[in-house]
Design a protein around this nucleic acid. Sequence first.
DNA 1: CATTAGCAATCGACACCTTCGAGTGCTAAT
DNA 2: ATTAGCACTCGAAGGTGTCGATTGCTAATG
Lengths: 361, 361
Amino acid sequence: MGLSGRKEKILQAVVDGYINSCEPISSAEIKERHLPALSTATIRNELAALEEMGYLVQPHTSAGRIPTAEAYRLYVERLMPKRKLTRSELKTVKRYFNRKITELDDILKSTAKVISEITNLTSVAYAQDINDAVIQNIKIVKLTDTTALVIIVTSLGILKDATLSLGANVDDEYCRTTGEFMTSVLANRSVSEVIKPNHFIKQVKKEYAQVFKTVLKILKSYSHEEMISDIVLEGSAKILEQPEYANLQKAKAMLELLDAKEELVPVLKNNDDMNLSIKIGKDNEIREGMPECAIVTASYSVNGVNIGQAGVIGPIRMDYPKVISVLDYIGKTINMLPEHAGETYAGDESRSEDELRDDEE
Amino acid sequence: MGLSGRKEKILQAVVDGYINSCEPISSAEIKERHLPALSTATIRNELAALEEMGYLVQPHTSAGRIPTAEAYRLYVERLMPKRKLTRSELKTVKRYFNRKITELDDILKSTAKVISEITNLTSVAYAQDINDAVIQNIKIVKLTDTTALVIIVTSLGILKDATLSLGANVDDEYCRTTGEFMTSVLANRSVSEVIKPNHFIKQVKKEYAQVFKTVLKILKSYSHEEMISDIVLEGSAKILEQPEYANLQKAKAMLELLDAKEELVPVLKNNDDMNLSIKIGKDNEIREGMPECAIVTASYSVNGVNIGQAGVIGPIRMDYPKVISVLDYIGKTINMLPEHAGETYAGDESRSEDELRDDEE
DNA sequence: CATTAGCAATCGACACCTTCGAGTGCTAAT
DNA sequence: ATTAGCACTCGAAGGTGTCGATTGCTAATG
């Protein structure tokens, strides 16, 4: 059932006002700032109707109205005004991304930092799950007498090296051929495909079986483990600036959640194909006794490859127009980054391309 | 000037009591629990004397005494009772370190987690500065047509790979010989020695000069940059459990400090050679307006190599005996870890040693 | 001369009360 | 349908009074 134009206007006024002040909005306030033509009594009647419909509540009889989670949902969907970033906000974003960005990790950190700085909220960023990555190349490098390094190049960048022990009778040559063999079998397949049990095991000569198993184990550990290190939080302290967490109990509950970042993964995750995800209130009941919150995240990609999600976590009463415009602009900025991060060591400024070329002077 | 035995006893009673209750200690309390032979009036006289000497203060006239920072310093130095870990605390430590520990990072995380869990304080761990590491081996591996990976093995473990771009006319062989050459020049030297400007530049054939410069740049970036990722904080939310930060203002100041972990580095750092460092009150005035706090850290090493520091950050009123015994025991535990972390991928349980050996069935 | 009992003085915590004003819902008039 | 008017509700803020914990001081004591 739709709302009359006037009801919409009034509801928007309440949400807007409450986002700004975090205080119940009275009929007089709405009259002054939005609808001077109407009397407060009329507005009160409409407010009562909106309350009846479940969009507003009163903290107590003699107070103004505050929006329900339902009202916020409607707000972000239809009522919300559009907003552009101010010049100084744009400048802030540029400042962060003009720095040398060398690895995927750096993008995560910069993104989280800039989001937190502009929105004044706690921000969270996390790297795309490795499952969707496509294996491109596998190398095994002998490092010391007893250890070797496994390097797995994927479409999402280099898989963090994992080292393994080795027996005495292994030489560089063996490592090289083993790597080549592994590449020939696994290249151009996704991680999720490769780690299916017993999928490839028949094709593998006995000679390579052991190391093959180890590499699969490594891949599995990367795809299954909660990859804590790939979740970046910034500005946890900012949660305390929000009046809704002024209560120590609630503040603590939120901070404990942020401490246990892994628990955020499921919430961030089920957003894979959506560009923008807004979860309000009970959508994110991550743990018991948790105070209400809202989580807004966006998907980011470079060169068409999805690299992860980033967004904010804060009170339901957050400045959605601002948050959304920030996330949107950052998405565009990341997309324009000069090179795929995670593959290039940028040296300082210039001619890193030449650095390994034979010097022909 | 020394304290009489009785004054010492009373001061210890105040500090002990205040650590437990976070409430001013009255003369009656001391009489009951520690000195039933004396009257409260006598104890009051002694308390007044201790206050005169700067060890105690009264929040208001009709309240008990609380210790000053000076009193805590004396306490940890001379008065503090020794304490051993309880069985369940020992169990907790073992539980954490029995898990698979694969990399230096994992040690940091486990250490921080277990410290925080047992002490109920915010804990911090950070990896030893790379400057003291000794270079052992350098490998360059071509990954894709245009990128290569630089791997630097040091005494502190593998330096996180850094990638570089390369020109078209570079092949595997060139990478291999370059790596061998770099190793021959740089092996057995410390990072801090190697990155001194122009130290090696004469020895390097023109042929290798470019890549040489790049590798040095990588090393420099690891030694100079604030290595944020190598500071691990656990249990930030626990700071709120401490009554001294019940005030939102103070809580926020502390959390902001924890958010900006880099700023902790200097405080953690100037502790290099001491095994245990206890900094109370104004010792850690890291930033302005910061509420008072205490930082207790210990140095940790594996196989005689110093790998970093770990400890707790909390209110001046913290349970020093407990914290110190925890840090001490963890130091012993880490030292007994089966293998140098950061060099071994532990696979699952057993015969990882065999995994790269030729299968001779 | 150190120690102690006794007592008045101090001061925060807490509970209770009053006042004030913001804001509503309802009713009757337009 | 809208509005003016009014009684009503309720939290916030501030004031008051009581209670109890604890001290410092003084004078007595061994």
